[in-house]
Design a protein around this nucleic acid. Structure first.
Length: 601
DNA sequence: AGGATTCAG
DNA sequence: TGTTCTGAATCCT
C-alpha cells in the first residue's frame, strides 16, 4: 500500500517542487536552513486560510456604477491624485499615485471618476463580504477590498468522507502554486483513500487540504464575480500572513496556493527581504529597526536570539512580546486567528486644514456643521447595511499646529457619553436632518470648548466620532422606550420612523413601557410585523408574543433564546432589521468542490 | 475609561 | 513613492 501511495503522490513531490534555481531542496542557504525549522510545524498545522482581495477595487466599483465604462480606461481621483486605475488604464502606463496632469498626458481618453465618497465602495465591499460569509462564519475584513476567510472547518468536513473505509477523494488544486511558473488551471488529480491518507506525511496532507481550500476559494471568487461583478485575486495557505503574501503573486483575477515547505518558505521569505515587506511589521517598527541597523528579515532573525549581543539593543525599542511575534513573522509563522468582522464599532469623519488653519470660534462652528453633515451621511449608510444601532458615545478630537518654539503638534480628544441622549427615529419630516446636523454641531462645539477654552488657537485637524452599541438592544429602546408604549407601536409607524433620525433627550430608563398593558389581539399582527422587521422569523415571533404578551419582553426572550434565532455562525444576521437580509440566514452553505470530489465505492 | 501608539488599506 | 483618512487593537495610566 505504501508503494501505491508513493505512485499516486509522486507527482506532487516532483512537479510541485520549486524550480531548481532555488537550491534543489538542499538546505545550504541560510534562509532555507531557518525555514527548515519552521516548516514542519506549519505543515502539521491544519488551518486553511484564504486571503481574497479585489483587483483595483475603486476602479472596478466605478465600472459597475457606470457600465458603459467597462473595459475602457478608468481612473479614480482623490484630491489631485489618481489613486488607482483599472487595467485598461494601466496598459497606458498609468501608475498608482500619478497626478491628474500626468495621467491626461499618458492616456487622453481616460475617464476620471471622483473617489472621495466611499459610500458606494463600502456597500459593494459589504456585499462581497456577505458572499464569502456563506462559506464560513470566520470572515475578517481588512479595509474595503480585502477579506480573510478561514475555511478549515469546511475542508475538514470534506475529509470526513475518509472515515468511510471504501471512500476515495479525488483532489486537485485550482490556480497557481507558488513559486511554480506554469499555466493557471488545475493540478493533476490525486486520488487518496483511507489507507493512503494514513500513510501520508504532513506535507502531503497539508497539500491535500490546501488543494481543497483552493477549490473553495475559486467558488467564492466566482460567486463574487457573478453576483456582484467584481474580479479578485487570492492566496491560499495555512495562515493569514502566508495567504496574504502570495495573494498578489499573480494578478488580476488569479489565485495562488502556498504550501509551506522549507524550500518554498525560503523562497517567499528570503534572508535579504526588507523587513517592511513582511505583513505585520509596519512603519513604526521598520523605523526603529533601521535605527538599530536592522534592515532585513535575516538580520532580524540573527539579532533576536535572546542570548545574543544584539538582543539587548533590540529590547531598548521593543518589548519581549513584540520581538517574539516579529521573529515568528520573519520565519513565516503566524498563529493569529481569522476574526469574524461584525458591523463597525465606530464611525468617524475628519477634515484637515493644512494650508488654511482654523483660528476662530466661528470657523470652528462652520467646520463642525460640515463635519456633522458628513457624519449623518455615513451613519445613514451604516444603517442601510447593519440596521439601526444606538450611539452611546460621541467624541471630538483635534490637532493643533506645531507650537512656534518647535514643539510637537499637540493633539486633543474629548469624549462624551450620550447617556441622556439617544438616536431615536421620529415620524420624519424631511427637514429633520438639518436639525440633527445642528444638534450634533452643538454637542461637538461643547466638547471643543472644554478642550480649548478660548481663542487664540491654530487647528490643523478636526474629527468627529461616534461609537455604536448593540443593534437589537437599540431596536428595543428605540422603538419601545419610555415615551412609547410598545403595544401601540405599529409596523407602519416603525416604517415611517425609519425615514428619520433624531438626537433626542431621553427622559427615562426605558422601563416605563414594560408596565403598559400587553398587546391585545387586534394589535398582535402589528407586533409580529415589528418583530419580523427586526429580523426574527415570523413563527418564532408569534410564539414569543403569545408567551410574553408584549413586544419588549418578546424581544428579550428571542434574544435570550439563542440558536433558533439568528444562527450564531452567520455574522451580521442578528443586526439586520430588514426581511431581505433575513433571507440569507436560511441560505445553505454551498456544496464545496462537487467538481473534483467524488465519493467512490 | 480614555489617551497614545501602532498597523493597515 | 508618499499622503490623507478611516478603523481596529493594544498598552498604559
Amino acid at each position: 500500500m505504501a508503494a501505491e501511495t508513493e505512485r499516486r503522490w509522486r507527482n506532487i513531490l516532483t512537479s510541485q517542487m520549486i524550480p531548481e534555481a532555488c537550491g534543489e531542496g538542499k538546505l545550504s542557504e541560510p534562509s532555507t536552513a531557518r525555514a527548515a525549522a519552521s516548516s514542519p510545524e506549519l505543515l502539521a498545522a491544519s488551518r486553511c486560510i484564504l486571503a481574497i482581495d479585489m483587483d483595483c477595487f475603486y476602479a472596478q466599483c466605478e465600472e459597475i456604477r457606470h457600465p458603459h465604462l467597462k473595459g475602457r480606461p478608468v481612473g479614480v481621483q482623490q484630491k489631485m491624485l489618481v489613486i488607482t486605475s483599472n487595467y485598461a488604464a494601466r496598459a497606458c502606463g498609468i501608475k498608482k499615485g500619478d497626478s491628474l496632469q500626468v495621467v491626461r498626458e499618458k492616456c487622453p481618453e481616460i475617464t476620471i471618476c471622483n473617489g472621495e465618497d466611499l459610500t458606494f465602495y463600502g456597500e459593494l465591499s459589504q456585499r462581497a463580504f456577505d458572499v464569502a460569509a456563506r462559506w464560513s462564519s470566520k470572515v475578517e475584513k481588512l479595509g474595503l477590498d480585502e477579506v480573510f476567510v478561514d475555511v478549515t472547518e469546511l475542508v475538514a468536513e470534506r475529509f470526513k468522507a475518509l472515515e468511510d473505509p471504501g471512500a476515495c477523494l479525488r483532489l486537485a488544486s485550482t490556480g497557481h502554486e507558488y513559486p511554480k511558473e506554469s499555466e493557471s488551471g488545475r493540478s493533476e488529480v490525486q486520488e487518496v483513500g483511507q489507507a493512503d491518507w494514513k500513510d501520508l506525511d504532513d506535507a502531503h496532507r497539508c497539500w491535500a487540504r490546501l488543494a481543497l481550500a483552493s477549490e473553495i476559494c475559486r467558488e467564492i471568487r466566482e460567486a463574487i464575480l457573478s453576483e456582484i461583478g467584481l474580479t479578485s485575486s487570492a492566496g491560499i495557505s495555512v495562515s493569514k500572513q502566508l495567504a496574504k503574501m502570495v495573494s498578489s503573486w499573480k494578478k488580476p483575477s488569479q489565485q495562488t496556493l502556498f504550501l509551506p515547505t522549507a524550500d518554498r518558505l525560503g523562497h517567499l521569505l528570503p534572508d535579504d527581504l526588507a523587513v517592511q515587506k513582511v505583513p505585520g511589521i509596519g512603519f513604526a517598527s521598520t523605523q526603529k529597526l533601521h535605527e538599530l541597523g536592522v534592515r532585513t528579515t535575516g538580520e532580524v532573525l540573527s539579532a533576536v536570539v535572546p542570548e545574543g549581543e544584539e538582543y539587548g539593543r533590540l529590547l531598548t525599542e521593543f518589548d519581549a512580546g513584540a520581538l517574539r511575534t516579529m521573529k515568528a513573522l520573519c520565519l513565516g509563522i503566524d498563529a493569529s486567528p481569522v476574526k469574524a468582522s461584525g458591523a463597525p464599532k465606530t464611525c468617524s469623519v475628519q477634515d484637515s486644514f493644512w494650508q488654511g488653519p482654523v483660528r476662530t470660534d466661528v470657523q470652528v462652528r462652520d467646520n463642525l456643521l460640515a463635519l456633522a453633515q458628513k457624519l449623518i451621511t455615513k451613519i445613514r449608510s451604516d444603517e442601510r447595511m447593519y440596521g439601526y444601532r444606538p450611539i452611546p458615545t460621541f467624541s471630538l478630537s483635534l490637532m493643533h499646529a506645531p507650537s512656534s518654539d518647535g514643539g510637537a503638534a499637540r493633539k486633543g480628544r474629548k469624549q462624551m457619553q450620550l447617556g441622556s441622549f439617544q438616536i431615536a427615529r421620529q415620524p420624519g419630516e424631511q427637514g429633520d436632518d438639518e436639525r440633527l446636523q445642528g444638534q450634533i454641531a452643538d454637542r461637538a462645539f461643547g466638547l471643543f470648548r472644554k478642550l480649548v477654552p478660548e481663542e487664540p488657537f491654530v487647528l490643523h485637524i478636526l474629527n468627529l466620532q461616534v461609537g455604536f452599541g448593540e443593534a437589537l438592544g437599540a431596536q428595543r429602546r428605540l422603538s419601545f422606550g419610555a415615551s412609547a408604549p410598545s403595544a401601540t407601536v405599529s409596523a407602519a409607524q416603525l416604517q415611517a420612523q425609519a425615514e428619520g433620525i433624531e438626537l433626542t433627550d431621553s427622559d427615562g430608563d426605558g422601563e416605563a413601557g414594560r408596565n403598559k398593558t400587553p398587546a391585545v389581539s387586534t394589535e398582535r399582527a402589528d407586533a409580529v410585523a415589528t418583530l419580523v422587521s427586526m429580523g426574527f422569523a415570523q413563527d418564532r415571533a408569534q410564539q414569543a408574543l403569545v408567551q410574553c404578551g408584549d413586544v419588549p419582553r418578546a424581544v428579550e426572550m428571542l434574544l435570550a433564546d439563542g440558536p433558533s434565532s439568528p444562527p450564531a455562525h452567520l455574522p451580521h444576521g442578528d443586526v439586520s432589521s430588514r426581511a431581505e437580509k433575513r433571507q440569507r440566514l436560511s441560505c445553505p452553505v454551498p456544496e464545496a468542490s462537487g467538481a473534483i470530489i467524488d465519493l467512490l465505492d
